[in-house]
């Protein structure tokens, strides 16, 4: 499976390039539109919630603390939801190619992943520029977001491909996931800080694998700190399980996958 993917590396690369190119072609702001969306959301939350939340933020007392916190969380969540949502539908979108050309189908979610990663890096650059305006300088701990990216990608890829395969047979899954992702977002401390949550819900928040992963970004970008290793246990376990499960189901389903498209 991996060998055949290697043979298709040029196709994967040029597909990613094609997606980028398609976004920049024939529009004035081109690729900046997708940066604008998370930035606007962060701006809105900052305007509405900055006063309330800042008081609750531990160890920091800066005007810019809450916007930095929201932007970090949004960036992490954005990577996760983009990979997951697009993998969910990629097989259905590419039905005609899958029916008529024999190529390794696993190329498709990998292209999705590559695209999301490029978007993510561009967003991080934009965020870094904004942080400079706040007078918040990057530190060495920023490098912790690289393992964060790997874990987020793995988990999103695993869950996305797993559900994406099932979605070919039961198309309600994509609909259910739009609702589920919204719930998941609010169960993750992105807009709020974790300690505002009532004690009885803390356990749920701790079990949520995204809490630890978003925390990696927040710690690194805001506090210039490494992640708390204990919070990474649920995401590591779930990422590994999700990736293995997605490969397993992909193998089992692939004889029937094209039949249902």
């Amino acid at each position: 499976m991996l060998r055949s993917l290697w043979r298709y590396r040029y196709f994967i690369m040029s597909s990613i390039r094609g997606d980028l190119k398609g976004r920049f072609a024939r529009s004035y702001l081109g690729g900046f539109w997708f940066l604008l969306h998370p930035l606007m959301q962060a701006l809105i939350f900052s305007i509405i919630l900055a006063e309330i939340m800042r008081a609750r933020m531990p160890n920091v007392d800066s005007e810019a603390a809450y916007p930095i916190y929201v932007l970090s969380g949004m960036a992490a969540w954005g990577l996760f939801s983009e990979i997951l949502n697009r993998s969910l539908n990629i097989f259905i979108e590419q039905a005609s190619a899958m029916k008529k050309i024999a190529f390794p189908r696993l190329c498709l979610p990998i292209i999705v992943w590559g695209n999301a990663l490029i978007n993510h890096v561009l967003l991080l650059v934009a965020i870094a520029v904004i942080f400079l305006f706040f007078g918040h300088l990057p530190g060495l701990a920023w490098s912790y977001i690289v393992p964060g990216m790997v874990l987020i990608s793995a988990m999103a890829f695993g869950i996305g491909v797993f559900l994406g395969v099932l979605n070919v047979f039961a198309r309600d899954i994509a609909q259910i996931m739009t609702v589920a992702m919204q719930l998941w977002f609010w169960f993750t401390p992105i807009v709020y800080v974790k300690n505002v949550v009532p004690a009885k819900f803390q356990a749920v928040i701790d079990l949520n694998p995204m809490t630890g992963l978003v925390g990696v970004y927040q710690n690194a970008l805001l506090l210039n700190q490494g992640p708390s290793l204990r919070s990474l246990i649920p995401p590591v376990i779930i990422s590994v399980v999700a990736v293995l499960a997605s490969f397993a189901i992909f193998r089992r389903a692939s004889p029937e996958l094209v039949d249902a498209l």
Binding site: G18, A25, I101, A102
Partner: peptide, 28 residues
């Protein structure tokens, strides 16, 4: 080599030359 549908895998933004490399890659 199968021609089940012409132009499958082409990207509208690529030039003809780039599409040969792109869609040709898809054909293996």
């Amino acid at each position: 080599s199968a021609i089940l549908e012409l132009g499958l895998g082409f990207n509208a933004e690529f030039t003809g030359r780039q599409n040969i490399l792109h869609a040709g890659g898809l054909m293996g």
